[in-house]
Amino acid sequence: MDKTSIPAIRIEGLMKRYGTGDAAVDALKGVDMTVWPGEVVGLIGPSGSGKTTLLKCLGAVIEPTGGHMQLSGETIYDGKDGGWRTGDLRALRRDRIGFVFQAPYLIPFLDVTDNVALLPMLAGIDNAAARKRALELLTALDVAHRAGAQVSQLSGGEQQRVAIARSLANHAPIILADEPTAPLDSERALTVIRILNDMAVQYQTAIIVVTHDEKIIPTFKRIYHIRDGRTHEEAGEGRPL
């Protein structure tokens, strides 16, 4: 974590309201969060607390209704100044945000390499360069030996590693991981968190891990608790992996 540089994510007073009038529900009521490059932070909270809404706002999947959001020092959303600063949210997601889901959600009709290479290809990188990048990441994540395998031939842990590789494929400065260890046993869950920490350091990526998983919560050095649409920060145990 490099706190002397620009934060990878900075959000201030982020709000999200669903519906209007009497049916309006405020899912986020002014969330503040800062995550630094190379840092893995936990985002925890009970069901309905607004974790997924916050993740969707950070992932430019839904539009907040207020507040301010910066990625790597660049304002991408300003509720007081017209909302999103870019008209192409897909390009924003493709180039600057990586996603790791609860289930790996790999594309079943692509092999392992192409699942990772797809992202750079979508960004316009030629096939050879994209596959080279994919193999580098698969090597770093210790799944290069399954590069030509079909998704259905991989174990759950291998699939999750490939999903992490995919999230890093475009050098995204931010990775949003939604319950990435939920389907895994303790050992594999800790392995995934170790990999995320290693990748954060190696690629100077900021990673936000949404989780309920009691096994991995002690591994975070910093945790954001979210409750009733508001966050508060606390230091984690940072237990060594």
Binding site: G59, R90, R94, D95, F99, Y105, I107, L119, L122
Partner: peptide, 16 residues
């Protein structure tokens, strides 16, 4: 549906 949602999330264009 899930694969298409993932494709859209990771930035695949509508024309793709």
């Amino acid at each position: 549906v899930r694969e298409i949602a993932v494709l859209k999330l990771i930035g695949a264009r509508n024309r793709t």
